[in-house]
Structure formats: C-alpha cells, structure tokens
C-alpha cells in the first residue's frame, strides 16, 4: 500500500469527541496534511481551532483560499464555505448552494480531493445524522483512495456511517476508540 498524501476527515453530529481523540496523535511530524470537514452548529462556530489546539501540538488553522496544502498541518473547513482542492494542491473556498443541506459539505470535499489525489487519499467518515459524505466516499473508493468509516455501533449518531456501509464497499470499519491508533499506524506505515 502506498502512503497517502492527504487525509480528509468528515464528521457531523456526535463526531466532535472522536476528532478530539484523533488530535492527540497528530503531532507536528505527522507526514501528511489533515483536513477536517465538520458540520458545525453555532456553539463551536468560533472556537473550534482553540478546542483542537488544546489536544495537539501540530499547527491547526482554518483553511484560507489559495493556501498551499502542507504536511503536518491540521486544516479546518470554515463555517459556511465549501472547501475545494485545485490541481496544484492548493485550497479554494466556495460559497455556492448547500449540498445535502450542508455547507461545508463533506461530499463536495471528498469528491474534489479524489479528483486531485486519486490513490494518494485517505478519507474517514465519522458519526453523523445525515447522508452527507456517503456519495463522496463512494467516489473516493472508485478513484482508488482508501476509505474508512467509524463503526456505527460506536457512533453517537450512527446514521451517517451506517448509510456509508450500506452504499460503499469501504476498506476499513474502525471502532471509535481505535481510530486514533489506526490513523497513527496508517501515517507512519513505511512507504512501499
């Protein structure tokens, strides 16, 4: 297996706790960039970065348009914008219509990332109450990327991962408690 060049994590209702746990294994020497696309409600609108920063030593920042994507950095999709990725591996922001009632939409970013990164992509879909991310995950799989879903049994809101499992032949189903270790293992896999 090849080592990925980008990891995208999509989550909705009930995913915050899992993401907090993931943060603790992402250190500044993490060999790939991590992009988090989270459906936010107004409660953690402004302090998401601060919240994550309390758990990780890595650089954590909100995505800026035209920004070059760098390894070891944790990028957060800004509230109310879709995050797209250009051929030259820079971010673009997009304020077009909501997709699956969501902006940012996980589907939009998964798709775009798959177009640019193809087999060099890992996508994780976590707990959530709607189907956003499922169609995109299928596309990632189609393009040869690695697809991982939180085990719905361990999800606070199982609908999203459950729906993914019914639609996509995902590569790994991982229990919430094992996700951090799984990610760490994935990232520090010796390149083949």
């Amino acid at each position: 297996m090849r080592r990925a060049k980008l990891m995208v994590i999509g989550g909705s209702a009930g995913s915050l706790q899992v993401i907090m746990e993931i943060m603790s294994v992402i250190r500044p020497d993490f060999p790939l960039p991590v992009l988090i696309v989270l459906h936010r409600n107004s409660i953690f609108e402004s302090n998401l970065e601060e919240l994550f920063a309390s758990r990780s030593q890595a650089i954590i920042k909100e995505v800026e348009e035209k920004e070059v994507i760098l390894p070891g950095v944790i990028y957060i999709a800004p509230a109310d914008y879709h995050v797209l990725i250009e051929e030259d591996q820079t971010f673009s922001l997009d304020y077009s219509e909501r997709v699956n009632f969501s902006r940012p939409s996980i589907d939009v970013t998964f798709r775009c990332a798959a177009d640019v990164y193809g087999t060099d992509l890992v996508c994780l879909l976590l707990s959530g109450g709607n189907a956003d991310g499922v169609e995109g995950l299928g596309y990632v799989k189609e393009r040869g990327g690695l697809t991982v879903v939180q085990d719905p049994v361990t999800a606070e809101v199982p609908y999203m991962p459950q729906h993914a499992l019914s639609q996509v032949a995902v590569d790994f189903v991982v229990a919430a408690g094992n996700i951090p270790a799984f990610i760490k293992g994935l990232a520090f896999l010796p390149p083949v």
């Binding site: 797209l84 250009e86 673009s92 997009d94 077009s96 939009v108 798709r111 775009c112």
Partner: peptide
C-alpha cells in the same frame, strides 16, 4: 477562474 469550482459547476 479557479478551476475546482468551475469544474464542479
């Protein structure tokens, strides 16, 4: 125009 958005549209 930024290509990713344009391509999507």
């Amino acid at each position: 125009y930024s290509k990713a958005s344009l391509q999507r549209r």
